Computed example of a mutant assay.
Amino acid sequence: METNTITVKLYRFLVQLLKHIFLALSKYIPEKALPLIEYLIEEHKVTLKIVGQRQTKHGDFRHLPNGKMQITVNNNLNPHQFLLTLVHEIAHHVTHKKFGRVQPHGKEWKTVFQHLMLPFLQPEIYPLSILPHLANYLKNPKASTDTDVNLSLALRYGMAEEGKSFIFEVPNGRVFKFKNILYKRGNKRRTRYECLNLSNKRTYLFNQNAEVILVE
């Protein structure tokens, strides 16, 4: 009898915990996507942690010292970025459970990611300004959406973060700051810009959707 009571209490606790998680998620993803995300989290026993902004990544999937697996997503992403990042990381989780140790963004992950994202490709979730670029990206998804310039710009609604400019908006020869290093913008190659590092005098290539701070 005591065992049954404990089981019921544990079940109620887990239900309340899931409700809390989903309530928190409703602030970060499009409303119409919430039932689908709830299903994925419950179905795949996802452990999710929403964290502060990180400069080098939007989210990650990792093994914890206790043997559990955890997904983290940055809290500064807009709803459409957050949703795509979350499904990206859930795909890592599912790929690991299904295939074990494989290439992080290899064919197994690509197939799982495409399958998981398919139900979200609807105008009630992603607007028409984003949907065609997202569908094209999913034909052969890469490790980061930032490598797809058109999708990256669409996901940011064509606007850089406040106080920053996209590199393609920076006039040729203008000095800008990126990760606390000063650069001078140079000529455009096919899809990237040559930029001179003013400290070491070396030239680096910047994706045209890189966000930088103009120097007066």
Rank of each mutant, 00 (worst) to 15 (best):
P141K: 07
N150E: 15
R202A: 07
A160G: 10
V149N: 05
I181V: 15
F178L: 14
N172K: 14
R190H: 13
A160T: 10
M117S: 13
N187T: 12
E194M: 09
I130D: 06
Q114P: 04
D148Q: 01
I125L: 05
N150W: 00
I181G: 00
R202C: 02
K142Y: 04
G186S: 08
S199R: 01
C195F: 06
R192Y: 03
L116F: 06
N180D: 10
N172G: 02
C195V: 10
L151R: 06
N200F: 03
L182F: 10
Y157C: 06
E162T: 14
S199I: 00
I130P: 09
S144C: 06
A143I: 05
Y137T: 06
K107C: 05
H115K: 13
L198N: 05
L131R: 10
V170K: 01
E161K: 15
Y193W: 15
T203S: 02
G106M: 09
F120M: 11
Y137N: 12
P119N: 05
F166D: 07
E162H: 09
N172P: 00
P141H: 09
R185S: 10
R190G: 02
S152G: 04
S165N: 14
N172R: 08
C195T: 12
P132V: 10
Q114S: 12
H133P: 00
S144W: 03
T191S: 14
K142D: 06
F178Y: 15
I130K: 03
F120Q: 10
P104Y: 07
R192K: 15
Q114L: 12
T203W: 08
L131V: 07
P132T: 11
N187Q: 11
T147W: 01
L151A: 06
P127N: 06
